[in-house]
Amino acid sequence: MKILIVDDSSTMRRIIINTLSRIGYTDVVEGENGKSGLEKLGQGGVEMIITDWNMPEMDGLEFVKTVRGQNPAIPILMVTTNAAKEDIVEALQAGVNNYVVKPFTPETLKEKIESLLG
C-alpha cells in the first residue's frame, strides 16, 4: 500500500515514516506542502494520505478539499497541532476521515491507520 505523507517539517515526515515502517508500511511518498502533495498524488498509486494542516503555499485544509473534489474515497488522516474543537470539525467537514493531534504516540498513529483501512 502506497501512503502519501504531506508535511512541511522534514523531521515530522521522518517520524511518520519510521512509525509506518514499524507497523509494516514501507511504500511511502512525500510532499512538503499541499501543492507538492497534489503533484505526488497525480503520479498515481497512492491509497492513503496523511497530511499536516499548517503549511506554506497550500495548507492541509485546502489540500484536502482539492483532493476530495477529485477523489471522494481515498482515506485521509490529518496529523496536526491544531487541537481546537472548531478546527477538528472544520477538517472533518472538508473531508478528513480521522484526526490526530501532535505530539502523538506510534500506537495512536497505528490505531488510526488501521481503523481507516478497516
Binding site: D8, W53, N54, M55, P56, D59, T80, T81, N82, A83, A84, K85, D87, I88, V89, L92, N98, Y99, V100, V101, K102, P103, F104, T105, T108
Partner: peptide, 29 residues
C-alpha cells in the same frame, strides 16, 4: 508563511495529550 495553529501556545510535548479530546470530537461529528 505557513498558516498558524491557534492552540499551539498551549501545546506541550507529552504525546497524545489531546487524543481523548480529538477522538471525542471525531466521534460526535
Amino acid at each position: 508563511r505557513p498558516s498558524i495553529s491557534h492552540t499551539i501556545a498551549q501545546t506541550g510535548t507529552t504525546p497524545d495529550e489531546n487524543k481523548a479530546h480529538a477522538d471525542a470530537v471525531v466521534e460526535a461529528f
